[in-house]
């Protein structure tokens, strides 16, 4: 079984300590991320595809995005 099929139950999370509010995630994932008045991300809306999530993780200047197992 390919590795990607073993880890389908995951979601994109934000390390809020690492996050410094650059807002790149909101540009790359506009369906999932909007910014509050100080530029910090608010998660709402459909989960991104693996490809889009990976891209946001790679481009976050604070390295604050990561995959985590979906709770439950």
């Amino acid at each position: 079984m390919p590795v990607s099929e073993q880890v389908t139950q995951r979601e994109l999370r934000i390390d809020r300590v690492a996050c410094s509010g650059h807002g790149v995630c909101a540009s790359l994932l506009p369906q999932r991320v909007r910014l509050d008045e100080w530029g910090y991300p608010i998660l709402a809306g459909p989960h991104p595809s693996d490809h889009d999530g990976e891209r946001a993780i790679r481009w976050c200047p604070a390295r604050a995005l990561y995959w985590a197992p979906t709770p439950g």
């Binding site: 809020r16 300590v17 996050c19 410094s20 509010g21 509050d36 100080w38 910090y40």
Partner: peptide, 9 residues
């Protein structure tokens, strides 16, 4: 004072 949403919110 670590997480923006709390620090400012």
């Amino acid at each position: 004072g670590q997480c923006g949403p709390c620090l400012f919110g």
